[in-house]
Computed example of a mutant assay.
Amino acid sequence: MIEDNDEIAELRANLDRSSHATCEWKVDNDCVACRFQDYQRECINALNQKVLKRSEIADVMALIGVFAPFIPTSRMTNVFGKMLDHLLTSIKFPAPDIDDLAVMKAHRLNGERDEACETIRSLDRKKRIMIETLMEKLPMKSDKTISEGTFVTNYVSPLLYGTLALDDGRVQIYFPNTECQTQKQQGIKADRPDILIRIRGQEAVFGEVTGPAQAGHTAKNAWDLFRLARFGKAFLDNGNSVAPLLQVVYNNGTFMRLTIKTRGMFILEEIGAFEVPTKVAGIPALAATLPTLLAARDDVQQILDGDMNGLKRSWGYGDVRDAKKRIA
């Protein structure tokens, strides 16, 4: 990603330019942003000494100004110490609004799909269609030989359409694997998201998917997380206040949220996990973790209700006037 001394010097210069004049975010009278800059310097030094590893993905993300306290590394812990405990936020999830007993009864019918679908008639239309689709598409036993494309179509897609899409077309879900237009418009290297949600026609939510074949590929999944941070930064640099991000690694789904905490510092929070059922018997586990996807839906609604790109006029900071000055 960064190979010569000029680029490392530019990282250091960007870090100096993003310094904040006033310490606003403090824990026990200690400025978190100042600590973050110390942490960034450690990461830049490790990069310069060629000892920064891709597996230390939180340290890699720090190079671009993204702080992920839920993925502590030795460098992060050395700089922040016990402060890290105060930086992990607890999330209050929305009510799932789903009949657990109906879902469990449908599951116990064990392959009798018509009868199972009849038991969930009490659910709202979108959740009912989601579960019916999963009952139709999922095997009785997990099949790890399926392709990633089949996994996305039959396993992941029904979850997102059942929770995040709107019938009026203002929120549309795609699985394009094509270049991110937001990144291209900003003149930075464009990656290809596996999941793309457009809100009123604009790219807004990004996701990465790993199918069963590469579920244990730690480096690949870590680098997917780095790409998600880049997607989210591009969206925030367009003048938005929150960037919802999704990562699916086979049956484990994670919803994250990237926001601008203070000058030169983006913070990535892990909001919650959700189950991606890989067999019919896994559907009740999805119902139990559905609040995570409903929290993602709330973020989508927040973007939909707000003024997209509205912060671009001021960036939310009196001393910051363009996107290049906002980033570390």
Rank of each mutant, 00 (worst) to 15 (best):
Arg200Ser: 04
Gly201Phe: 04
Gly201Asp: 05
Gln202His: 07
Gln202Asp: 05
Glu203Phe: 09
Glu203Val: 11
Val205Phe: 09
Val205Gln: 12
Phe206Lys: 12
Phe206Met: 11
Phe206Asp: 08
Gly207Tyr: 05
Glu208Met: 13
Thr210Trp: 07
Thr210Val: 08
Thr210Ile: 12
Gly211Trp: 02
Pro212Asp: 08
Ala213Ile: 00
Ala213Val: 00
Gln214Asn: 13
Gln214Leu: 11
Gln214Ile: 03
Ala215Asp: 00
Ala215Gly: 00
Gly216Glu: 01
His217Tyr: 12
His217Thr: 06
Thr218Trp: 10
Ala219Tyr: 00
Ala219Met: 01
Ala219Val: 04
Ala219Ile: 02
Asn221Tyr: 04
Ala222Phe: 04
Trp223Gly: 05
Trp223Arg: 03
Asp224Lys: 14
Leu225Phe: 00
Phe226Gly: 09
Phe226Leu: 11
Phe226Lys: 04
Arg227Glu: 11
Arg227Met: 10
Leu228Arg: 08
Leu228Thr: 08
Ala229Ser: 14
Ala229Phe: 03
Arg230Asn: 09
Gly232Ser: 10
Ala234Tyr: 05
Phe235Arg: 12
Leu236Trp: 00
Asp237Glu: 12
Asn238Val: 03
Asn240Met: 05
Val242Thr: 02
Val242Ala: 02
Val242Cys: 01
Val242Glu: 01
Ala243Pro: 11
Pro244Lys: 06
Pro244His: 12
Leu245Val: 02
Val248Gly: 10
Val248Tyr: 07
Val249Asp: 02
Asn251Asp: 15
Gly253Val: 13
Gly253Asp: 13
Thr254Ser: 03
Thr254Cys: 04
Thr254Met: 06
Phe255Glu: 03
Met256Arg: 08
Met256Asp: 01
Arg257Ser: 02
Leu258Tyr: 10
Leu258Pro: 07
Leu258Ile: 06
Ile260Arg: 10
Lys261Tyr: 02
Lys261Pro: 02
Gly264Arg: 01
Phe266Thr: 04
Ile267Gly: 00
Leu268Gln: 06
Leu268Arg: 13
Leu268Val: 08
Leu268Met: 13
Glu269Leu: 14
Glu269Asn: 15
Glu269Asp: 15
Glu270Gly: 11
Ile271Thr: 08
Ala273Thr: 00
Ala273Asn: 14
Ala273Phe: 02
Val276Gly: 06
Val276Ile: 06
Thr278Ile: 04
Val280Phe: 01
Val280Gly: 08
Val280Asn: 12
Gly282Ala: 15
Ile283Ser: 07
Ile283Arg: 05
Pro284Trp: 14
Ala285Val: 07
Ala287Asn: 15
Ala287Glu: 14
Ala288Leu: 15
Ala288His: 12
Ala288Cys: 08
Thr289Cys: 13
Leu290Val: 15
Leu290Ser: 13
Leu290Phe: 14
Pro291Val: 11
Thr292Leu: 07
Thr292Ile: 02
Ala296Pro: 09
Arg297Gln: 10
Arg297His: 07
Asp298Gln: 05
Asp298Met: 00
Asp299Thr: 00
Val300His: 08
Gln301Leu: 01
